[in-house]
Design a protein around this nucleic acid. Structure first.
Lengths: 336, 336
DNA sequence: TTGTATGCGTTATCAT
DNA sequence: ATGATAACGCATACAA
């Protein structure tokens, strides 16, 4: 079934049928009704290949996800999927490894798929500065800010990572912790780790008695958290009374490690995570964490991209974080 | 850049260029070399819309995922993605809710996308029996078996759910548990729950002193596990010494619930999960579970589908499960 | 082995 | 408001 058949069946011409199908103005009500009736009846669907070939673009939205085993991204993808499904833009998901260049990948996909817009889940300023200029379609960077990059067609939705990390450390300090270890990613390759580390430094600088005892870097995974915590314990023993993990998966790995060493959380060592994964609230102990609001981030990035496709200017949104206090941090008395 | 430009640049005709690009025989080595050199040089890519339009199909593989918040499916999708990326079949992911009809959805997508093959993650025999006959392309049902459905173009990759559940219960019985509760899905709508329940029954039937104290049904989620366990405790108190949860997320929710009631796992109540999610090994206690081998399932379903696309007959594979014993089950003395 | 011509289903430009 | 017609980029049957 093609629009040709539709033309034959309805008695109208190809042109009119096409106009009806695309909700164009110059069509009589009568034509619209008769044709749409047949469409409904026959369950007709436009052939997207022909349409895209003609229009020289694919009408689809590309999502580039940087990092496969990222729970936070998995949640975001799920929610983005749900929101885009309400429109009629098909979604093209593309996963790349953490160390691949997301902008090169986007350029490749632009050539191949000619999408109307791009969503980046994760990314590095460096890569954007180098090559994003070649990308013509609107894009939204999620998780990092792109405000300072100055591309007219690049928006962003992010958390204030510096402030969020700072508030996590500040909370630990308020609870009396003075010897703190941090677990995160390599600051030279992970921009987010760099920002969160910066937040840690700023918090700690405000009190001369508090020290960042160690900073262990690793992949953002359960195993990574476990291994890093092992190194922390090897190096500092129980001198450290609190750990800030830059992701909940790291925190969970770390807690398991702490327990395997015969220590308890939070009685012996307190732990704060980052992300707010659902499983954190069902962990033993419930994880105190800096929650990122994935639902807001998802709906915001989709909304901004759809607006941009319709011609709206780029925007840079900061989604508020929430320090979610549960059970994995204990107050300690400061022995002055 | 189109094959027209390629023809111009190489001095050959459109036809020859097309033949080279499609690895067809009747082409001279010289033509192949010169043309491919230009392709490499210019980074030329065929326009998939034109190609698909011409060939009347999309060359893509559709994946229909039934149930959004399913960790196991999320893992499978990730691994399927990785394996299909090695080929040049684009992947079209489609998520539907648990109560939607996956076969109707597939029919719709076949009309719309004209894929060369379909992967079903989850599904119900009933739906397949009713409408799968209309589907012409090869498909693989993952997670359920389709051996008895008798469709020539439908393969399946599944775990033996009856045996797996039975072995979980048997293990609990071996450890001395006689009063067991089960948490899972509604057997009338979830085929998998039905099979696993059947496995439970068969295990328990073999020993007259062991009883299935309660079967609580719920959604497969952390919250669902928590709520179900709450009902178990309300009804049976601590009469029950062990719980079999039909998914790790249910098990984790249940454990948290048990602890919130001042009881300990496994000292007061033992818990066995199902799936083998990574987080289970980092939970407190480490989760004893029936592990499904997602990597094997993923590579198997992709391999079977690719073979079927190349004309191979359908296959029905059972991937072995592994009872993974960790810390969430305790041996109890039977007081005879 | 190579070249030429036709059509896939659609949109868009031009008449009418 | 409607109809005719030319492209879009490619594969393929046929001619050379």
């Amino acid at each position: 079934m093609t629009i040709k058949d539709l033309a034959r069946l309805s008695g109208y011409s190809l042109g009119t049928v096409s106009r009806v199908l695309n909700n164009q103005p110059n069509v009589s009500e009568k034509a619209r009704e008769t044709i749409m009736a047949i469409v409904k009846e026959a369950g007709f669907e436009l052939n997207s290949n022909a349409k895209n070939l003609k229009q020289q673009r694919s009408n689809s939205i590309v999502v580039i996800v940087k990092g496969r085993a990222n729970e936070l991204f998995a949640q975001l993808v799920e929610q983005i999927q749900a929101r885009v499904a309400e429109t009629d833009y098909p979604l093209i998901l593309h996963y790349i490894d953490e160390d691949e260049n997301e902008v090169h990948c986007a350029l490749q996909l632009c050539r191949e798929k000619k999408p109307v817009g791009i969503l980046f889940l994760g990314g590095t300023s460096e890569n954007f500065l180098a090559d994003f200029g070649e990308i013509q379609v609107p894009a939204v960077l999620v998780t990092n800010t792109a405000a300072s990059l100055g591309f007219a067609n690049l928006s962003s939705v992010s958390t204030d990572d510096v402030a969020a990390a700072r508030s996590a450390i500040s909370y630990l300090m308020e609870q009396g912790h003075r010897e703190i270890a941090v677990i995160g990613g390599d600051c030279t390759v992970s921009e987010i780790s760099h920002l969160r580390y910066e937040g840690c430094i700023r918090a700690i600088r405000r009190d001369s008695e508090t020290a960042l005892r160690s900073y262990e870097t690793t992949r953002f995974s359960l195993q990574g958290g476990y291994a890093s915590m092992e190194r922390v314990l090897d190096t500092c023993g129980t001198q450290v009374t609190a750990v800030f993990a830059m992701a909940d998966v790291l925190a969970i790995g770390a807690i398991r490690c702490i327990c395997d060493h015969g220590l308890r959380v939070p009685e012996d060592i307190s732990v704060v995570g980052f992300d707010g994964l659902p499983v954190g609230q069902f962990y033993m102990p419930k994880l105190t964490t800096v929650r990122q609001q994935t639902d807001e981030m998802a709906s915001a990035c989709v909304r901004i991209l759809l607006d941009a496709i319709d011609g709206a200017p780029s925007r840079h949104l900061t989604v508020p974080y929430v320090l979610t206090i549960y059970e994995s941090v204990k107050q300690v008395e400061t022995l002055k």
